[in-house]
């Protein structure tokens, strides 16, 4: 559905996007992740035709965004980082204007506006001025705008930024629902958020693509070793004895927690389940209780920080202000 090839963008001498290529299949929810100033917004602006590229191509549903902008733009609904709202209008008026601009047939106009308002749950504020709405509602109006005309692709730039935790959950649910009928691309600087919502993740930093894979694969790839955490009332010496009998344990770290011994074990991935069973039995055999025996969830956040900072430092400073 979306093909991005060797995309590069310079702002003057500053390279904001550096030779990025990826393709997103129909019906996927794809997350764009990277620290602030990584080039997420720039890439999205180029993909939606708001900004020109220095080189490279973007194809949406077979149409090149630079060669056939009108056809390509008809397939896209775009929510920029700051929702583009006319504050002096009501959501109904605003959505009507955009539906007209998207060439929704006149007789279906009112129904289409009703439909997206229902979907984004803004029907009850439909006739209040947008400037009087809360940030969460403004964001919903922004998302409603992208849904008009049922475009195949929906691109959302930092849709949950600046919302309170309850609103964040609501917007996330909304986006997950959208993923059932549209191809969705969203950006965020919080990896765990992208991890929750997306099938595929693209990580970029300093304008370069660092990782691009399905969420599951990425978790495996980034975390080749499995970590186990156990809690036991055995002493450190007893535990060392037990662990020594089990094959496949590569490392163990001991610490004290609530009067119990906490052991963090690194193992090879394919034997993880077997090792967990063995641990239970062996400790039971020496009459010691195991109070916790769990796989530790891969901490993508740490790896993300590692990845995005491991990139060789360039001499250029990050220039936030350059992002339009």
């Amino acid at each position: 559905m979306i093909e991005v090839n060797n995309l590069t963008k310079f702002y003057g001498d500053h390279k904001a996007v550096d030779n990025i290529s990826f393709s997103v299949k129909d019906g996927t929810v794809c997350g764009f992740c990277g620290p602030n100033g990584a080039g997420k917004s720039t890439t999205m602006n180029i993909m939606t035709g708001c900004l020109s590229a220095t080189s490279g191509t973007v194809t949406i549903g077979g149409y090149d965004i630079f060669e056939h902008p009108m056809e390509a733009k008809k397939l896209i609904g775009y929510l920029p980082e700051q929702p583009p709202l006319y504050l002096e209008e009501t959501p109904r008026e605003y959505l009507r204007f955009i539906a007209e601009a998207k060439k929704v047939p006149r007789e279906r106009l009112a129904d289409e506006v009703e439909r997206v308002m229902k979907e984004t749950q803004i029907s009850d504020v439909a006739d209040r001025l947008i400037k009087n709405l809360s940030k969460g509602y403004k964001q919903r109006v922004g998302i409603a705008q992208t849904l008009l005309g049922s475009p195949k692709v929906i691109i959302l730039d930092e849709p949950t930024v600046g919302l309170d935790p309850i609103q964040v959950v609501e917007i996330r649910d909304l986006i997950k629902n959208l993923g059932k009928r549209h191809t969705v691309i969203l950006s965020s600087h919080i990896l765990s958020e992208v991890q929750q919502m997306c099938d595929e993740i693209i990580i970029i930093a300093k304008g370069r693509l660092i990782a691009y894979d399905t969420t599951d694969n990425l978790e495996k790839q980034l975390q080749p070793k499995v970590m186990l955490e156990i809690q036991t009332d055995a002493t450190k010496e007893e535990s060392e004895g037990v662990l020594g009998q089990i094959e496949g344990i590569e490392n163990a770290e001991y610490s004290e927690e609530d009067g119990l011994l906490k052991v963090l074990i690194t193992t090879v991935p394919d034997r993880e389940l077997e090792i967990r069973k063995l641990l239970s039995r062996k400790f039971a055999a020496i009459d010691r209780a195991v109070l916790k025996n769990d796989k530790v969830k891969a901490n993508l956040e740490e790896i993300f920080i590692e990845l995005t900072h491991a990139e060789p430092e360039t001499h250029e400073e990050k220039r936030e202000g350059d992002e339009p």
Partner: peptide
């Protein structure tokens, strides 16, 4: 100023 120009750029109108 309100960044609504981004919306106009992304709509299928020239």
């Amino acid at each position: 100023k309100q960044k609504t120009d981004q919306l106009l750029y992304s709509l299928p109108i020239s």
